[in-house]
Computed example of a mutant assay.
Amino acid sequence: MADIANIYKADASRYDLMQYNRVGKSGLKFPAVSLGFWHNFGSKDNYDNMKQMCRTAFDLGITQFDLANNYGPVYGSAESNFGRLMEEDFRPYRDELVITTKAGYDMWDGPYGNWGSRKYLMASLDQSLKRMKLDYVDIFYHHRMDPDTPLEETMQALADIVRSGKALYAGVSNYNKEYTEKAVSILKELHCPFIVNQRRYSMFDRTIEEDGVKKYCKEAGVGIIAFSPLAQGMLTDKYLEGIPQDSRIARDNRFLHKSDLTEERLRQIAELNELAKQRGQTLAQMALSWVLKDDEVCSVLIGASKPSQIKENISIVEQTSFSEEELKMIEKICER
């Protein structure tokens, strides 16, 4: 028998603060802040903490949960944990949620568990739906460009997945301008609703501006959702006093290394932190606000290790504008 005292009931005021932005020219809207399951939702993480983070996020109006087939570790475990959360807490709210997943990186052994073949994408989504205990996802992404599989094959698979009802919209992740242009062309001919490109973007990583994809997506009516907006934690106050023992850099994981924190980078972080204080924000809040400063990015994906971080980050929706002087200062600080 269910413990009535622990049955989750979403906060009635959950839509009062959050802003929702249209995704490209589609009818879908993303919350300005979305919750990513890349870290802290795997088999080695605390399930009760995951539950509290997801409850906190939804109570604050975060309606999008972003996953991928190989998020963990171990592969698939973030989706499996989400499936448990879905059954225990979020089933009554399914129609209020945007749930996404992806396939494109290494997932299982052999030649059919990676990249962008039709066989891999379709099998992967079927596995993902079983793990997440869902009939469909709102967006299914191809997770990375595949130089060996014809893009027509990959896009046809996405179109057929949407047509089957297993996904409502198609998206891509880590696609450059050339691949995005081709994807737009192919999916337009296939009458498939292709609405979003998920790319890395932060004050410290301007690749989507440099390769032209940010401008192109705006013109083509494709939304952009930004991941790693805090540059793997560098755009926070975490490293102002050195490297904490529990930080990602201390663990020297494959995405962030001690060598990334050069003297110049530490100087930039300190100066940006001072500017954030002048704005009445934390460095993390200012960094998220900066990504959302114009309408070319419809949402920022945050990672979190505890509910308090979500509460801190959500307040940015009240302050995403910058003065010309502030923007110039940020550019000057970030110059290399």
Rank of each mutant, 00 (worst) to 15 (best):
S124H: 01
L97S: 05
E263T: 14
L35D: 02
E263V: 12
Q64H: 13
E219F: 01
D295E: 13
L292D: 10
V317R: 06
N273L: 03
D3F: 12
Y141E: 05
T282N: 09
K277G: 10
I225N: 05
M53L: 05
G27E: 15
L301Y: 03
A5V: 11
R267C: 06
F90P: 04
Y75R: 14
Q198L: 04
Q281N: 04
L28D: 08
N6E: 13
L60I: 01
P147T: 02
S323R: 04
A103M: 10
R200Y: 00
G165D: 07
E219G: 01
R84F: 02
F255E: 02
G223M: 07
E79L: 12
D237P: 03
M203D: 06
Y216T: 02
S247M: 02
S323C: 01
G72K: 06
R118H: 14
P244F: 06
L158Q: 12
N197C: 06
A270L: 08
A270I: 02
G104K: 05
Q245G: 13
V172Y: 07
T63Y: 03
A159V: 04
Y75K: 14
S308M: 12
T180P: 03
P229Y: 01
L134K: 12
N46W: 03
R14H: 15
E335F: 09
M132S: 06
M203Y: 10
Q278P: 00
G303V: 09
L17F: 10
H39T: 12
A250G: 07
L97W: 06
K177I: 08
Y175E: 03
H143L: 02
F41S: 04
N21A: 06
E318F: 11
D246K: 03
Y75C: 11
N49E: 15
G242W: 11
K238Y: 01
N21E: 05
D3N: 15
Y8R: 12
E296G: 14
Y93F: 08
L97H: 04
I314V: 15
E241D: 14
H191T: 08
Q309P: 04
C334Y: 01
P73W: 04
A270Y: 10
F194D: 08
Y141A: 08
S34D: 03
D252L: 00
S173M: 04
V222P: 07
L85R: 05
L283C: 10
N313D: 14
T180K: 03
V213F: 03
Y8H: 11
T56R: 13
Y93E: 04
E189R: 14
A170Y: 09
A231F: 12
A57E: 08
E209F: 06
S124D: 04
K311L: 15
D246S: 06
G233S: 00
L97T: 05
M107Y: 15
H39E: 13
A123I: 00
T180H: 02
G212Q: 08
R91H: 11
M1D: 02
S299N: 10
T207W: 09
P31S: 15
K328R: 15
M132Y: 06
R22L: 07
N197F: 05
R131Q: 05
D160P: 04
C54F: 14
I224F: 09
G116R: 08
S26N: 10
G36P: 07
Y47M: 06
T100Y: 10
K166Q: 12
C54W: 09
M155S: 01
G24V: 09
F255P: 00
G242N: 11
M132I: 07
A220K: 14
A157Q: 09
F322Y: 13
R55T: 11
L190E: 12
R163A: 15
G303Q: 11
